[in-house]
Design a protein around this nucleic acid. Structure first.
Lengths: 192, 192
DNA sequence: AAATAAATCAACACGATGTTTAAAAATGAG
DNA sequence: CTCATTTTTAAACATCGTGTTGATTTATTT
């Protein structure tokens, strides 16, 4: 999960305990309402130790989000933008595998007590990577319609993921990729 | 906006000032990070006065959300659930008019510094009102696919609204209703 | 086994909270 | 307009979480 094998074992231990405690607390309250005090009590970590690792709880949340976002971008980098338009299933499969691996944290960030700005970051990454490519696919005239449809699809996908996670991710990543792919395709078809 | 004409003018004044200050602050930070102190300073209201109206800032946010949600449900109540499946444009038009009327607050709640739990509430209302009705439209066998598609569409619609608001709601409610309607229809068609 | 690095503990000043009092100001009913 | 009522203000208060510090103990790496 964290920096794999280089760091001191104690550092990994502390960060893992804190992360798990955060995920636990995020099941019941927004991270904005979680105090460092209760986080450390939950993790059974000295409060002073927390500040050796993070500036504050927002810094911690930010670092966790960056970790996820970075790996998210790495997955995207394995596929060309054009792929999403033509044959999105491979990319989607990789994404759902990735999400399932970090399911706990992803669910925490996307769920009821999640972070709306994390959600925005994901959307922004998608936008940066795909929108400009897509744009050329369609004629100039009706651009705003495409922009709306595009945002509809991206939000829809995130809702799809959130539904999947919050209902216990029973379907396999393969099933979800197929499902998402068919929904997206029908959305794109409707544009043509 | 608030309880229309019954209450003391001073009460209306105070609540309006506080609400406007909150909307203003929500343009730059999450409401979880807004202190009562700065809210009152922004509104130029004595801090003690705040506590005469609200328990804390969460209570205030909750009351504002309830106001919106209530009016939202009133709009939905004007239309039958079946309508959304057959001819959604009237309902959608009313919704977009309603959203535009409360654009500032809606944008604040749905935007970058918004409240993810408000978003969930909206989804839940939609779900309660439409899902059970929709369910009978489709065959029993492939229920989870419909559930996912349904959630995709609802999330997509909220993303649509958010895009509309954050880009200055240039399109008219009528245009947006037509756009949303056509996207939803194509989504439903793909299920059949 | 020794050197290094991390975690603990206790104490600190600071700022926001939510409450309480008494005084001042605004409201609206008659 | 007057007056009783209601709301807002102002100041003071204890309380709690914050973020930092310094000294000590514990765990790790080599």
């Amino acid at each position: 999960m964290n920096h794999p094998e280089k760091t001191d074992r104690r550092i990994r231990r502390t960060r893992t305990l804190l992360t798990n405690a955060l995920i636990l607390l995020l099941k019941t309250k927004s991270f904005h309402d979680i105090t460092v005090k209760e986080l450390c009590e939950t993790a059974d970590i000295n409060r002073g130790t927390f500040y050796l690792h993070y500036d504050d709880i927002y810094d911690m949340m930010g670092q966790l989000e960056i970790e996820i976002v970075t790996r998210f971008e790495e997955v995207l980098a394995l596929h060309s933008p054009e792929e999403l338009g033509s044959d999105p299933n491979d990319l989607l499969y990789d994404l759902f595998v990735f999400i399932e691996e970090g399911a706990d944290l992803c669910q925490a960030l996307l769920g009821q007590y999640g972070d709306i700005s994390f959600l925005m970051k994901l959307k922004a990454i998608f936008h940066d990577r795909f929108w400009n490519v897509w744009l050329h696919t369609f004629q100039e005239s009706d651009r705003s319609r495409y922009e709306y449809t595009y945002n509809f699809i991206v939000s829809g996908c995130i809702g799809l993921i959130e539904t999947w996670l919050s209902s216990g991710h029973r379907e396999s990543p393969k099933e979800m990729a197929a499902l998402a792919g068919s929904i997206i395709s029908s959305g794109i078809r409707s544009l043509l």
